[in-house]
Design a protein around this nucleic acid. Structure first.
Lengths: 236, 236
DNA sequence: CGCTGGGTTGACACTCTTCAAATTTCGTGG
DNA sequence: CCACGAAATTTGAAGAGTGTCAACCCAGCG
């Protein structure tokens, strides 16, 4: 991997140029993965870290009847399995939503970075802490909000993250999820997700159809989902 | 702080003796905090890491009407705000449940540990990753389970963690939470938590009264909550 | 063309919340 | 040790929210 600047988004401008180059040089492979493709299975040993260059990826757990609970949705610029670096394994599955481009960095090369580039090491730690912060917001979403609020919060978060990643600055972004997927993220059924989306559209907050999300009223959507973007801005 | 061995639980035996001593020597203060006491407020700068020696502590977010969503419950042996070390601030509040004893280590001393003790640094990272893994289980609990399953999962997790921390090896443990608190952790009302507890007791799975939890049927409780303890055992 | 997967809608059952009141437990001061 | 007040628990009844099941529609695609 040469100096191709694939590293987008999340905190890119907080990383020193030298560290950024080191990270990009450590990339061993960039591959394209089709939609709805299982990337990593729970329990399998992880030997490399995957960085999402383009597309959408989700992590999920299955319940006893095989119904998924989506735990996180990743956007371009995210490491999707960095927590598998210190632990060596994952406790959940990871799959693409739409087609995705993924860059991988072997754990051995991360070892070298960890020992020789302390500031970058801390940045990688921060990245996993941001994941945890988003997990906490998902807990809040599922625990305290009704169906409408959950969906509103979900889209508000996604839009805020895409904005920070400088992917979709205008409130319109593609999202290759079905209404059933949305339900699996928000803890509701696909049928109910449909009714919720209709209400949010009628209220002039959000339109989502054909895999394209359009935020019609950002502050209204955030209010509806009790969404406060502060947790996305880690000081580091 | 001398060599008093206050470091309990979580992965203690995975830490080299030298590193363990370094950590214990870094402790600057040990203090006792009364029950229902706010320890840290969202947004405030964090200058030290807190380690829970004894007692129970919870982290939570408030919704617009001031209702809490409990995000995590900490047991003896947990760092409760290690994620505030790389970030410098917290995005949620932390409070004691019952009376607690807390040891603090200044971030400056952690800096020294991070640079001179790479294996310990990785252990600290692992500790925050275990937090994230528990967050994911809470997402699953709230997203996929009904009220009975959520409460069962909550107690199953707590019992498993206390067992790993070698605090309550017999399935009986104190838990200074009211039924309303339990509801705030499981995303249900306190009234409903009461009815759920009665059902679980009638099914012979769990008894919880007067701040004392008794697991009557461990495997039954785990089945009821679809709880699989694998995620608690990080390989590291 | 017909098939298939996703989206949409309606009717009904069930879970959980809400509100209210009664009861028990617990801490505290007398 | 008792009395008292506050907090927590318990129970009932009614209503809102969500799930379930079934049917139908629509677009894309072989």
């Amino acid at each position: 991997m040469t100096t191709e600047r694939f590293l987008l988004g999340r905190g890119r401008d907080r990383i020193a140029d030298g560290d950024l180059c080191a990270l990009e040089d450590a990339v061993e492979q960039v591959r394209d993965v089709p939609a709805r493709h299982l990337l990593m299975r729970r329990g399998e040993p992880v030997r490399e870290a995957s960085f999402l260059v383009d597309g959408y990826v989700c992590r999920y757990l299955d319940d006893r009847q095989g119904h998924r609970q989506i735990l996180a949705v990743h956007v371009p610029g995210d490491f999707i399995d960095l927590h598998g670096y210190p632990t060596g394994a994952l406790d959940h599955d990871i799959a693409t939503l739409g087609p995705a481009r993924i860059a991988t960095i072997g754990h051995a090369r991360l070892d070298a970075i960890m020992t020789h580039r302390a500031p970058l090491a801390r940045t990688l730690w921060l990245s996993t802490l941001l994941d945890a912060a988003m997990h906490r917001e998902w807990i809040f979403r599922l625990g305290r909000l009704g169906a409408d609020g959950r969906v509103a919060h979900f889209f508000a978060e996604l839009e805020a993250r895409l904005m920070l990643a400088e992917v979709a600055p205008d409130g319109v972004f593609p999202l290759p999820m079905t209404q059933a997927d949305l339900g699996e993220a928000c803890g509701i059924t696909g049928v109910h997700a449909n009714r919720v989306l209709r209400r949010l559209r009628e209220e002039g907050l959000l339109a989502f159809s054909g895999g394209l999300a359009t935020v019609l009223d950002r502050s209204g959507l955030q209010r509806r989902g009790e969404f406060h973007p502060a947790y996305l801005q880690h000081r580091g």
